[in-house]
Amino acid sequence: MELRQCRLEIDDLDAFVSDLGEIGDRHGVTIQAFDSRYVADRRHLERAVELADRAIDRGENVARDRAVEILLYAAGRRQIDRALEMGVGEGENRAVVLVDGESDGDETAALEAVETLDAFVGQEATLETRDTETLCAFFDITDAERGATDASLSALVRERVALLEVEK
């Protein structure tokens, strides 16, 4: 799995998603773009990919598309419309683009193709500063819960991702 932290300026979301799908098909990879405010860290997305693949292997996936299944796990939700809040939208986005395939070469080539899209403004460290308020609100992590544990916010988010498996 490769990640590209970046800034996107999306004029037409449907066209952008279609472009990502075409790049993914051309390179044999799965591509998903996230609004970085909803991503705790790299391990958050690694866990989502792992659990999505396990669900697909077991025939327990909700979505037909692997990229959407990864989004569902990353969001810790089974409802696609609620998980889409974690995706990018039209306008300016601080984003994280996830590319996952069988080979590093395919992932690298796909990322290079993503960088040629009109929507791609440039690389930017988007995960270095965490939007704690947004993460807590989106993943329903209360102040009381944070106060009752010494677990990091990232660990609590990954717990929500893992709980999706139990709640099915």
Results as ranks from 00 to 15, higher is better:
112 E>F: 10
68 V>A: 09
140 D>T: 09
43 R>C: 02
78 R>G: 11
93 N>G: 05
27 H>G: 06
47 R>T: 14
99 V>F: 10
146 R>A: 02
88 V>T: 07
113 A>C: 04
165 E>N: 11
20 L>H: 09
39 V>N: 01
152 S>R: 08
115 E>V: 00
38 Y>M: 06
96 V>C: 09
102 E>M: 11
122 G>N: 12
91 G>D: 07
14 D>G: 03
47 R>Q: 12
162 A>E: 15
109 A>R: 15
41 D>L: 00
150 D>H: 13
95 A>I: 01
38 Y>D: 04
63 A>S: 15
3 L>T: 01
34 F>E: 01
130 R>F: 02
137 A>R: 10
60 E>Q: 14
56 I>G: 03
64 R>L: 09
44 H>D: 06
31 I>P: 02
52 A>M: 03
138 F>H: 09
161 V>M: 07
71 L>S: 06
145 E>H: 13
20 L>C: 03
165 E>W: 11
70 I>Q: 05
38 Y>I: 02
131 D>K: 11
102 E>Y: 13
110 A>V: 04
120 F>R: 11
94 R>I: 00
85 E>Y: 08
96 V>I: 06
22 E>Q: 15
72 L>W: 13
29 V>L: 13
158 R>D: 04
143 D>T: 06
162 A>D: 11
71 L>F: 05
122 G>H: 09
125 A>I: 11
111 L>C: 01
122 G>P: 02
77 R>A: 08
67 A>H: 06
164 L>Q: 15
103 S>Y: 09
78 R>K: 15
100 D>I: 01
128 E>C: 07
3 L>Q: 07
140 D>P: 03
116 T>M: 14
130 R>T: 12
145 E>M: 12
158 R>K: 14
